[in-house]
Design a protein around this nucleic acid. Structure first.
Lengths: 242, 242
DNA sequence: CGCCGATTTGACGCGACTCAAAAGCCGTGG
DNA sequence: CCACGGCTTTTGAGTCGCGTCAAATCGGCG
């Protein structure tokens, strides 16, 4: 989203989740000992951030999820998408009583859960893991800045174009290489991520299709005219400096 | 912004900047040795993030500043305000080539600058400093989430109300205790932080004044009817959980 | 087949942007 | 002391993007 080096670089940096390092670098019996759990959650479920014994950290191994903040009156803001196998963790917990957005699965997800304390210990044991965590935090912060710019400064059409470019880059880095990729979002999700109505998202997407910019059907998408889409929103053109 | 415990808690947690810990805990000659610099920057200047010798980290000791992302066509998004003496650092640097928002002063600021490497070393030497840095990062992330929600989900009037509540809480925690506080923002700054036009900011503020909610004049503000303002935007009512 | 959620489509209205110009507020210099 | 640019804040009029409300169509799925 913010490192504009293209799919290749993204694949190199984010492709192999640090969770794999953890799984491979640690003997099986040790994992059981540490109470590391691997489960499959259905779409639309919220990941727990703590259980009776303390804080938990989750890692999405595959599938899509999002972080979201919502209010009682039904408003929902998605503050970030999590694409399995891109190395991001779920809760990456706050030490004090900070209120955190919920992580909600958008598709079925294989998710690894471990205790916050255990993760800390592992991070100290394997400095690479710690580094990965730090880097994940950086990337996420960068994405937040980009999202805020997107929602605050661009208008509907540009916002969607940007989101599509961004997701395309991330998703295709973690998957197939042709222009097409796996996009399991409802229009309502896109709307909630971009601060607009699903009705309006629909209309914009329709226009994009009519113009031959994208093809979206049933959870899969394909950027037909990437250049045009990127140009529409100045993708990777944001001057973060000055 | 996100820890809804009121001014008291904010004062306790963020009031004493970790930079003071650094300044007090380290002998003078050592500081010089580490190339720690203390300078006063005028309003409207961007803080350097690196010099010829490497990455820099800045700490705003007093005054106001903001982090902003801007494009060549003049659009600007303020992604966060920095209020001197609330313990936040300036650049809090990214390890890799991530593009970062600029920190720009909004008033004259006393700013402490040190090398990223030196800060790292200090953090290891004084674990309290490391903890403070981690906590700062957390708070900032939390604020980003809240801002994204604010810009994405609320409408103009609510956005401004929220921003005012938030800034009032932060600013008065670091300053005077009566309802009034130091608010050196141009309407254009507020607009750029909230993703709206300065014209519209003006109109909304005008309405607020007419309704007796706030008083703003020449860099100083006073929340006249805090309850009403808070209720207008559900301040501290956001259900971060579910 | 019938239900339910997601996508579409249409009509309508308001909020917020745009364009433009006036008015207030300095600091500066004649 | 007042005139003079350069900001910022105000104010007005006109417009359009996007939200709102509502109903129809399209698919899956039991």
């Amino acid at each position: 989203m913010s490192d504009g080096e293209g799919p290749g670089a993204a694949a190199a940096s984010g492709g192999a989740p640090w969770a794999c390092m953890l799984l491979e670098g640690t003997p099986q019996e040790r994992l059981a000992d540490l109470q590391v759990t691997l489960a499959t959650r259905p779409a639309g479920s919220d990941l727990d951030r703590r259980d009776d014994r303390g804080r938990l950290v989750s890692v999405i191994l595959d599938g899509w999820a999002c972080r979201q903040v919502s209010t009682l009156d039904g408003r929902r803001q998605i503050v970030g998408f999590i694409i399995g196998a891109d190395g991001q963790a779920g809760t990456w917990t706050a030490p004090s009583g900070e209120r955190e957005p919920v992580v909600r699965t958008l598709t079925a997800c294989r998710v690894l859960t471990l205790r916050a304390g255990v993760l800390l210990a592992l991070a100290q044991e394997h400095p690479q893991i710690g580094a990965r965590l730090a880097r994940s935090a950086q990337i996420e912060r960068s994405r937040l800045h980009a999202s805020l710019f997107n929602v605050g400064q661009r208008k509907a059409r540009e916002r969607i174009a940007y989101l599509l470019c961004d997701l395309a880059e991330r998703a295709s880095a973690a998957g197939e290489g042709d222009g097409g990729f796996w996009l399991p979002l409802k229009q309502q999700d896109i709307a909630d991520a971009l601060g607009m109505t699903s009705v309006h998202v629909n209309r914009v997407l329709q226009r994009f299709r009519a113009q031959g910019l994208v093809q979206i059907r049933k959870g899969a998408a394909r950027i037909a005219d990437r250049a045009a889409l990127a140009q529409l929103c100045d993708y990777a053109q944001v001057a973060f400096d000055e």
